[in-house]
Structure formats: structure tokens, C-alpha cells
Amino acid sequence: MRTGRSWKVVLAVLTCSVVLMSASYTMLIPFLPLYLMQELGVSKADVNMWNGAIFSIAFLIGAIMAPIWGKIADRKGRKMMAVRASTGLAVTYFLGGIVTSPEQLFMVRVLQGFAAGLWAAELAIVSATVPAEKLGFSLGVMQAALTSGGVIGPLLGGILAEVFGMRASFMIAGVALFTISLIIIFFVPEPPREPGDIPNRRQTRQMDLLKEPVIRQMLILAVLVQMVILILQPIITLYVAQLRGSMDNIILIAGAVFSLGGIAASIAAPVWGRMGQKKSFGKTMYLAMGGAGICMLIQSIPNSLVLFAIMQFANGLFFAGINPSISAVLANNTKSSVRGSIFGMFFSAQQLGSMAGPLLGGTVGTYWGLKDVFIVAGIIMIITSAFVRFTRREAY
């Protein structure tokens, strides 16, 4: 029953676990190229190829598997799927710390893709546990936790690698993920089900769910938004160096500038969630998308690193309102019995966007120019905002 403190306790516990999860995912990013060269013997000429392949393969496998795990979660239990994902990820991180070749690390990342789905399972648990009138706020809190972990992770990873070594950092990430398993096992109950809430096979067919126009639109938007969020990844360091006119301490400075968007998103996500609950998630969505698009376009203008950093923070304030709104629309337009499938598909859409974003950013930056990456990203967001504004349905 969604009463009293029970849903608040579940939300608090899952929020903490999401911070740990997100930090564990991202803490390895700063030193992965160095790990390949110094620990696994990859040559400098081949490191970019291996880094790209190893980084991307988990997204690809995760995108394929997420809807399957979501469907199983609906039939067998969301808590079980969350424990499966966190335990599986913990094991793969431990394996990542003992590999001796890039080929082995690639296979570990393949296994990591199969183990993925923790975020989708936790969204399904929250959406089935919290009261309907608190859904927007709760999803905003979860998004803030995810973003906070993403900001903390790279900084923590760099410190741990410096103090304990790169292999130890894999082990510490594994411990964090295993801790999540224990937290879920002992503190998170299986979400309540309404009478007749166990889905039949037809109810959980993804193709049938995709026939719903609202669901189809939200998943397409999820791909585009995630693509724009990660479009800067290949060029942010070079762009910051261009604005500074120097490569001195560029990794640290670029990381600090990039993290400003995450800090802003952590602050703003619950506020957007409340706004969506009171006004409408569709209105929140197109306002946030439009604001993010304008900020992206403005970021192509400054010749000052300070101004660029300010706009990076502003950008995070707007992006914070998009994914919680998409999550809420998906939850509000599906039965509780298929929430696992829906959030599995949502996660899959985000994984596809995560692959496409860096590829598009790198291509535009290489053949057009670094400033053009921001222009392309801004135009995409403004078009999506206009689409939501003028096709907005009563469903959202």
C-alpha cells in the first residue's frame, strides 16, 4: 500500500542506490585510455579504437537486452530484476580489474551490457510504489540522483586511480554495486500489484506497446534527447582548450566545466518534477527542451571560457526537466503491469542515443567545426520542443 512513510523510505533508499550506481558507471571514464595503455599493453596508435569499441559495446548490448529484462521484470518481479542487474554489474566490474588484455576487457563490457537494466528496474519500482500525485517529484529526485552520481563519478574515479591504482578502482566500483544489491534485498519491498496485475504474454509484447502513439513519441524523444546530451563528449575538451588558448591542465578544467551542467541538473530536476505534476508534463517538457536548445545555440557564440561555463550551467538547468517528464508520461499512460517493459524500452532508447550522440558530435566537429556541434544540438532541441508544443496530446 502506498501510504505513510513506506513510499518515502523506498524513494530514499533507491535514491541513494542510484547515486552509487551512476558514480560506479562513470568513475572509470577519466582513466580508461590510460588503463588500456599502461595495464593492458595497447599502443598509443590503437588506443582510440579500443577505447571507442570498449566504451560503446555495453551500450549496444544494453539497448538490445533492456526491453527483454523489462518484460521479465513485469512477469517475475521488479525487485528480482534490480538485484540481478546490480549483482551482475558488480561481477563485471571485479572482472574488469583482473583482465590482462583489451580483448578480455571488451568481453567484460559485453557481459556488462547483458547485466544492465538497473536504472529501468528502479524506475519501475518507484512508479509502482509512490502515490500518483508524487510521481513527478519522485522521478525528478531519481533523475537528480542519477545526474549527481554522474558528476561525482569521474572526480572520484580520478582520485581513486591516483591513490589506489586503476585496477583497485574497478574493484571499488564493484563493491559499490554489490552494496546496491544488499540495499535492495534488505530495504526495498517488491512493489504492490493491483488485482489481476500480472500481465499476460500479449500485454507485454513490445510491438503492441509501440502501437500507442504517446509511447512511440516519448521513446523517439528519449533517443534524441540522450543523443544531444552526449553530443559534446568527443569535443568538449578541444573546445575548452580553444576558448582558453592553452592545453595546460585541460583535462581537469574541461571536466570541471562539463560537470557544471550535471550540478545544475541535480538542483533543478525535483523542481521540474513538481512543475510537471502541477501544470502538465507536456508543458514542462517543451519548455525545458526549448530552453536547452537556446542555451546550446548561445554556447556556440562565446569566445570566453567563463561565459561558456555559465551557459553550461544554464544548460543543465533546462535538461533536468526533460527525462523526468518523459518518464512520467510513460508511467501515466501505461498500466502498472507493464511498467518494467516500458522503462526497459525507455532505457534502450537512451542507450541508442548514448551511442549516436558522440558519433554525431565527432563527425560534425571533424568535418564542420567545433562550434557547429552546438548549433546542430540546439536546432535538434528546438525542433523537438516545437514538436511537443504543437502535437501535445491530452495524455501529457
Score class of each variant (00 low, 15 high):
residue 3 T to G: 14
residue 6 S to I: 10
residue 12 A to Q: 08
residue 13 V to Q: 08
residue 13 V to S: 08
residue 16 C to H: 02
residue 16 C to A: 08
residue 18 V to R: 09
residue 22 S to R: 04
residue 29 I to V: 15
residue 37 M to N: 13
residue 41 G to Q: 01
residue 41 G to T: 08
residue 44 K to M: 11
residue 44 K to I: 14
residue 48 N to H: 11
residue 55 F to A: 12
residue 58 A to F: 15
residue 58 A to P: 02
residue 59 F to R: 01
residue 61 I to M: 15
residue 64 I to E: 07
residue 64 I to T: 06
residue 65 M to E: 02
residue 75 R to F: 09
residue 76 K to I: 02
residue 77 G to W: 01
residue 79 K to Q: 00
residue 85 A to G: 06
residue 86 S to V: 04
residue 87 T to G: 02
residue 89 L to D: 11
residue 90 A to N: 02
residue 90 A to T: 07
residue 93 Y to A: 04
residue 97 G to H: 05
residue 98 I to F: 13
residue 108 V to R: 04
residue 114 F to Y: 02
residue 125 I to T: 00
residue 128 A to Y: 04
residue 130 V to D: 09
residue 132 A to E: 13
residue 138 S to H: 03
residue 142 M to Q: 02
residue 148 S to V: 08
residue 174 G to E: 03
residue 175 V to D: 11
residue 176 A to D: 05
residue 176 A to E: 13
residue 183 I to K: 05
residue 185 I to T: 12
residue 190 E to G: 04
residue 194 E to R: 12
residue 194 E to N: 03
residue 202 R to D: 09
residue 207 M to C: 10
residue 208 D to S: 06
residue 215 I to Q: 07
residue 215 I to K: 07
residue 215 I to G: 03
residue 223 V to Y: 03
residue 227 M to I: 00
residue 228 V to N: 11
residue 229 I to S: 00
residue 229 I to T: 12
residue 235 I to P: 12
residue 237 T to E: 15
residue 242 Q to G: 12
residue 242 Q to K: 15
residue 253 I to S: 11
residue 253 I to R: 11
residue 254 A to L: 15
residue 256 A to K: 05
residue 257 V to M: 10
residue 263 I to E: 04
residue 266 S to K: 03
residue 267 I to Q: 00
residue 279 K to A: 15
residue 282 G to F: 01
residue 283 K to H: 13
residue 283 K to C: 10
residue 284 T to A: 12
residue 285 M to C: 07
residue 286 Y to L: 00
residue 288 A to H: 03
residue 291 G to D: 03
residue 299 Q to S: 14
residue 310 I to M: 13
residue 315 N to M: 13
residue 316 G to S: 04
residue 324 P to Y: 06
residue 324 P to C: 06
residue 325 S to C: 09
residue 326 I to A: 01
residue 326 I to K: 00
residue 328 A to W: 04
residue 338 V to N: 04
residue 343 F to T: 06
residue 344 G to D: 09
residue 350 Q to M: 14
residue 351 Q to A: 05
residue 357 G to R: 01
residue 364 V to G: 12
residue 373 V to K: 04
residue 374 F to D: 01
residue 377 A to P: 06
residue 381 M to T: 07
residue 387 F to M: 13
residue 388 V to G: 09
residue 391 T to M: 09
residue 391 T to F: 09
